[in-house]
Nucleic acid binder design. Structure first.
Lengths: 241, 241
DNA sequence: GCTACGACCTTTGTCTACCATAGCCCACAA
DNA sequence: TTGTGGGCTATGGTAGACAAAGGTCGTAGC
């Protein structure tokens, strides 16, 4: 138990993490539109914090690839388009294939049992429609694969876009039959690892990412333009007046 | 021409980038020892800047994986040991294999010519013993491979440890015959891409990283403990008194 | 009418000073 | 010896000031 700690992603008590969470959510939600400048003074007012946490949050988000910071020019929202999503999932697929292939080589029986246990919990969460638990278990499943590989650096890299992916799933959800397909794909990965079939494990992990990518692009396309309450149509800056 | 821009790594005019550069160099140089706490007030005095740039630099370095920041506890130097280096190079190898394989599929003849041109410049720089130009050309070679793949996100991830690797090479250098071997490995990669042999390109790129990893570990082991001028042997904090 | 220049304004990046709070250390007591 | 409590240090955050970089816009000159 307790194999997945990674406390660096534990939910934040510091202000700049809350600020980063808020800005990230707003980028995903479309409140902050692609290419929009994120000015520090405006964000300070909107989020009721001083400039210091805002600047640190923007740096954090740059690390996640959500904003671009140019020296002496400030931060802009990175456009999140289908190409970027495909690229991210391609990176995920490459790394997950490595994890699964390595797991097929070196996973102990106990680790495989643990994988199965997490898979069962994920199944339960899906049946109950418990979305947060579902996301958490899914994260645990893939993190455990990363830990089994023994390459923590690869796992860190793999988690670079975790917040972004989670936020997108929160917004767009899954297509109707995606959940049952996910379970089947996980079972295929586990099966390949149990059989010590490296090539099959790599392929299964890669396909899992690929299909997940296709699914989220379809889901996102269903809502071509969110325009929830007030879509600041032409406004290109965060200025509030 | 001008295929490799990536101005995000252009040398910095902002203070926090200079601070990050300095701290990074000192971590590599061993001035800041593994596990050592990096206290903001001390760094402010040492680097003659205020706390704001220091905090941002530390966040930046956390993004590069060189320091670990714990909320309300501060930053510590991440121990750079053989395992970490192996993990980083393994990630590099996974991504470079992807780049090379993809290049074998989709590179245009012009792009292959450009690869060869950079390779020639690298060869020249090595012959002249021009170390900075050598590093720059090597970077260009691998960046161009990443760009050919069309996945800029993967390239960004691939460059996560670029500063760290460069700093380590500056410190430890190369073994005697490594340079000629590098040239041969690059030629093999180019040859495989030209022949559109995906598997061979992937294998060549992976082996290139693996051998580079072995080389740097050997080089680093030659100097088990640098102890240049004043090695703060037992001191565990950056406190200067 | 179009271009180029310059003044103005906004924003960034940095500094200083200050404060609340969390974490650590150490003396002291049970 | 072990636990506890107080004091110290560092972190995290606020507020306000400033220089410098960048963008905007009006005007002068062609």
């Amino acid at each position: 138990m307790g194999s997945v700690l990674l406390d660096e992603f534990a939910h934040s008590d510091t202000s700049y993490r809350r600020v980063a969470d808020t800005i990230r959510d707003r980028i995903i939600a479309g409140t902050y539109t692609p290419g929009m400048r994120l000015k520090v003074p405006t964000l300070c007012i909107d989020l009721a914090v001083s400039s210091n946490p805002v600047r640190e949050a923007l740096q954090q988000l740059q690390g996640e690839g959500l904003v671009v910071i140019a020296p002496n020019k400030g931060a802009t929202v990175r456009p999140i388009d289908a190409r970027l999503i495909r690229e991210i999932y391609e990176v995920n697929g490459i790394l997950d294939a490595f994890f699964a292939g390595r797991a097929a080589q070196i996973a102990t029986d106990e680790q495989i049992m643990e994988l199965i246990a997490i898979h069962r919990k994920l199944e339960q969460a899906m049946l109950k429609g418990d979305v947060p638990k579902r996301a958490d278990n899914n994260h645990q499943f893939h993190s455990l694969l990363g830990e089994i590989s023994g390459n923590r650096e690869a796992l860190t890299v793999r988690l670079r876009h975790r917040n972004l992916m989670r936020a997108m799933r929160m917004k767009y959800g899954f297509s109707a039959d995606r959940e049952s397909i996910v379970l089947g794909e996980h079972e295929e990965i586990i099966s390949a690892i149990s059989a010590r079939d490296v090539a099959r494990a790599e392929y299964a992990a890669k396909m899992h990412c690929l299909r997940s990518c296709d699914d989220i692009i379809i889901q996102a396309s269903i809502e071509p333009r969110p325009s929830a309450t007030q879509q600041p149509a032409k406004r290109l800056t965060a200025t509030s007046n």
